[in-house]
Design a protein around this nucleic acid. Structure first.
Lengths: 162, 162
DNA sequence: TTGATAAATGTAACTCTATAACATATCAAC
DNA sequence: GTTGATATGTTATAGAGTTACATTTATCAA
C-alpha cells in the first residue's frame, strides 16, 4: 500500500493496470513501447511521485539502461506526448499519469510540505479562463493547471505524509 | 503603441501608470524600491512580454547595474513576491503585472507562435480544481494557471504578431 | 549623530535542467 | 534483403537557478 491522490490504495495492482493500459494503447496505435520507455514509466509508477529527469536517469544508469540526459529526456518526451506521464512545471519534474490512454487535461494538487501530487481533471475551456480566451479571441490548445498548498495528511500534522 | 493582452494600447502611459502604482504601494508598505528592482521592472514593462532572467541580466550588465545571476534573481524575487511581476512557469520567464498592487491570482494566455502573453484572472477556489481540492481535503494556497494556444493575431496569420 | 541591526548588493563558484549535434543501431515495410 | 524511418548512444554545451560569503547601504533607536 502507498499513497495516491493522498489516499491509500493497492499500489501494486494500480501499477500493473497502468502498464497494461499503456501496452494496449501502444499496440493499438503502433507505438514502440521500448525497454527504456517502459522502464522510465515503471520507475515513475513505482515511486508514485513527481521525479526530476536526473533522478530517473540515476536509476537508469544503475541498471545499465543509458547514462546520458538525452536518454531520460527522450523517454519522458514520449511518455508525456502520449499522455502516459505528465510534467509538473512548477517542480520541473514528471509524474506517471493515473489514467493513461484517456484523453484528458490534467490538473495537479501539489503539497508544499511532502511533495505529494494528486491528479485531478481540468476543463480549461470552461470557467474564467475559457471566458477570457473567448473574449480575447485566443484559442486554447493546452493548459497547465497546478495548485500548491497542503495535502490532507500534512494539514493534520502527519509527519512528511508518511 | 504596442500590444498588450493582444490588443493595441498606449504603452508609454500604461508603463508610467504601473510604475507609479508600484511606487505608491512600496511607500505605503515601507518596501525599498531600489534602483536595481526599479530597473528590472522597467525592463519588463518596456518589453511587455515574458523575459528570461538571463535576458534581463544582459540588459542590467550593459547598464553597469550588476552582472551576476543573483542580482537579477533577487530583484525578480522581490517583484514576484509583492505581485509586481509574475513568473510564467511554462516559459521559465517573467512578466510585469498588468495591475500591480491589487491582490489577485493571475492566469495567462500564452501564444505558442509569437510568445505574446495576456494576463487574466483565475479563481482557483472555484470550478473543478476547487471542487477537487475540497473533495480530497487539500487546501489551495497558490495556483499556476497557464493556457497555451494561438493569440487572435496569429490565428489570423499576422506574421509574428507584428 | 553615532552605533547597532537589518536589508540589499557584489561576486565567485556551483548545481540542476534541458537541448544540439552527430554517429550508430534497430525496426518496419515493401 | 534493402531502404527509409525511428530509436538509442555519446559528447558537448546551453540555459535556469542557488549557495555562500564579503561588502555596502539603509533604518532606527539611544
Amino acid at each position: 500500500m502507498d499513497t495516491i491522490g493522498f489516499q491509500k490504495h493497492d499500489h501494486a495492482s494500480c501499477m500493473r493496470a497502468a502498464l497494461a493500459a499503456v501496452e494496449v494503447y501502444c499496440a493499438a496505435h503502433k507505438l514502440q513501447f521500448t525497454p527504456v520507455r517502459r522502464r522510465v514509466l515503471e520507475i515513475l509508477l513505482a515511486r508514485h511521485r513527481a521525479m526530476g529527469a536526473y533522478e530517473i536517469l540515476d536509476t537508469l544508469r544503475d541498471e545499465g539502461l543509458g547514462s546520458q540526459p538525452p536518454v531520460a529526456y527522450r523517454a519522458l518526451d514520449f511518455l508525456v506526448n502520449h499522455g502516459f506521464a505528465h510534467k509538473i512545471e512548477r517542480l520541473n519534474a514528471f509524474i506517471a499519469c493515473t489514467h493513461p490512454g484517456e484523453d484528458h487535461t490534467p490538473a495537479f494538487l501539489i503539497c508544499r510540505n511532502c511533495d505529494a501530487v494528486a491528479e485531478a481533471h481540468a476543463e480549461p475551456s470552461r470557467g474564467m479562463l475559457g471566458r477570457a480566451a473567448v473574449n480575447t479571441g485566443f484559442s486554447i490548445e493546452q493548459a497547465v493547471v497546478e495548485a500548491l498548498g497542503l495535502c490532507p495528511n500534512c494539514r493534520k500534522g502527519v509527519p512528511a505524509c508518511a
